[in-house]
Simulated assay, not measured.
Amino acid sequence: MDTAAPQHTGRITYRDAVLDDVPALVPLVQSAYRGDSSKVGWTTEAHLLQGQRTDAASVEAVVTAPGSRLMVVERDGGIIACCQLEHRGEAAYFGMFAVRPELQGAGLGRQILAEAERRVLELWDVREMHMVVISVREELIAWYERRGYRRTGRMSPFPYGDERFGVPQRDDLQFELLVKELG
């Protein structure tokens, strides 16, 4: 489904990622969260984590796993964002959400999240959308709360020692489950 992008020229299109997209998706996700490029946007985790946010094998796994999709968002033929959608029983999982840093803050993320919610309802007729967010990311959690997600207080540990997820810059990182009722 195509929709006009607010405050930007060009049409926004959505499609499922294919393996040929992986070389473009890995640096997109990296740029939204880690390193100097991420500091252009507001979703940076560079102050919390150094190193990689994802790698080609992790993105390939999302693209090829049964019940999983990586939604690619394009404008004028270029990839500008992505998000993971995974069917988990009566819920869908939302993850690997990345918007090019220079495009953040103009309503694009809100538009993509709404499309992701619409798609999981259409694809899997789920009751809830789930996601995990690093619990100290108060500004990001507040953004999701304004979109109807609620904090559950259910925490899971950060994978300290596994550099595939980055190199923590502090010792109090954990993930909190956020949930939104759909439909």
Rank of each mutant, 00 (worst) to 15 (best):
D76F: 07
M71D: 12
K39A: 13
W143I: 05
R100F: 01
A91Q: 01
V132R: 02
G107W: 14
E90C: 10
P66T: 15
I79S: 06
V73A: 13
S156Y: 12
I112M: 14
R147S: 11
R146P: 07
V136N: 02
L48D: 08
L140Y: 00
Q52C: 10
G35C: 08
D76A: 15
E74P: 07
A32D: 07
R75H: 09
V99P: 01
Q50V: 00
E128S: 11
Q52L: 02
H87G: 00
S68E: 13
L103R: 00
L140P: 00
T43D: 08
E60Y: 06
A65P: 07
R127C: 06
Q30Y: 09
M155G: 15
R53M: 01
C83V: 12
D55N: 15
I141Q: 00
E117C: 14
E60C: 12
R118T: 13
R146E: 10
F94T: 04
L113Y: 08
S31D: 14
R127I: 00
W42I: 10
A65V: 04
V63Y: 08
R146S: 11
L121K: 14
W143D: 01
S38H: 01
H47T: 07
D55Q: 12
E117M: 13
V126Y: 06
L28G: 09
Q104I: 01
E60P: 01
G95P: 03
A116G: 14
G51K: 06
G109A: 11
H130L: 13
D36R: 14
L48G: 12
V63M: 10
I134F: 03
V29G: 05
V120Y: 03
Q52R: 14
I141Y: 01
A98W: 03
Q50P: 00
G77Q: 06
A46N: 14
I134K: 05
V59G: 10
G89P: 01
V126Q: 08
V40P: 00
R151P: 04
M96E: 03
L25H: 03
C82R: 03
A116D: 11
D76W: 10
G41M: 03
